[in-house]
């Protein structure tokens, strides 16, 4: 991977700009993708990616353009890399303890965090899920039933939006790309940004496996960088 700023052959300044942002958006999509994958229940793909060091490597490569800011999550990436040789069963059992059916579980769904906003308690899950489903469908993707507000799904949707944006930049369709950039921002504003910090805080209280510790620190730093003004990171909640 290379720094997109210095490795583009475009001479037209506008095309050059598009070419740079095409690569940046692709990198961001990549990061969301790995985060999403890591928050799903551990499976062979995750285990393989982790053991081969691909997660760390890919995130590093995909964020070269972040420059100085990348140093903020280097620590967490380092921790993640140490988990490469983690016992597979440990990871799975900890996932069950944290997010599965246990007394200590931390809900991994948006609706579990936003019930205060809902008009009627019982409807919360449905309202959030419905809104999300409609939102996804606007962009031509549909979630698995009952998974609409699941963390990895939302992350995956961000990855999808970034991917779309990346393609628009590639085609020099700046107007559409900018629209998508705004959509990403809106999605962070309306959904992920609202509940993710609290989710992180709760998970870190449960003394999770080093992998999940590193993962939530990494995700929190990343979302903080992505979100821009107004993000309230987990600690201050």
């Amino acid at each position: 991977m290379i720094d997109p700023r210095t490795h583009t052959n475009e001479t037209n300044p506008k095309h050059r700009a598009c070419s740079i942002l095409h690569q940046v958006a692709r990198g961001r999509s990549q990061v969301y993708r790995w985060l999403a994958l890591s928050f799903y229940a551990p499976d062979a793909e995750l285990a393989h990616a982790l053991n081969a060091g691909r997660i760390v490597e890919d995130i590093l490569l995909a964020t070269v353009w972040l420059g100085e800011d990348r140093k903020k999550f280097l620590t967490h990436l380092g921790k993640l890399r140490e988990c490469a040789s983690s016992a597979w069963s440990d990871l799975a059992s900890d996932y069950q303890r944290l997010f599965g059916k246990s007394s200590e579980r931390v809900p991994m769904r948006e609706s579990a965090y936003r019930w205060r906003e809902a008009s009627a308690l019982l409807d919360t899950a449905n309202q959030v899920a419905l809104a999300l489903r409609q939102h996804y469908e606007q962009f031509g993707v549909a979630p698995i039933a009952n998974h609409e507000d699941l963390l990895p799904v939302e992350l995956e949707f961000m990855a999808f939006l970034c991917e779309c944006e990346s393609n628009e930049w590639k085609n020099n369709a700046a107007e559409r790309a900018r629209q998508l950039r705004l959509q990403e921002r809106t999605f962070l504003d309306d959904h992920l940004g609202r509940w993710f910090p609290e989710f992180c805080r709760r998970v870190s209280d449960r003394a999770p496996h080093p992998f999940y510790t590193a993962l939530i620190f990494l995700s929190d730093t990343w979302l903080n960088l992505e979100y821009g003004p107004g993000y309230v990171p987990a600690r201050s909640l």
Partner: peptide, 30 residues
């Protein structure tokens, strides 16, 4: 923005972290 050389440096730093970060205390949030 960082170039190729800086990327290599970061990789090297990661290894340093791997040693340093074994300390028992969790790094604090932002």
């Amino acid at each position: 923005p960082l170039g190729e050389a800086a990327y290599r440096n970061d990789l090297a730093r990661l290894s340093d972290h791997a040693v340093e970060q074994l300390a028992p205390t969790m790094p604090s949030f932002a």
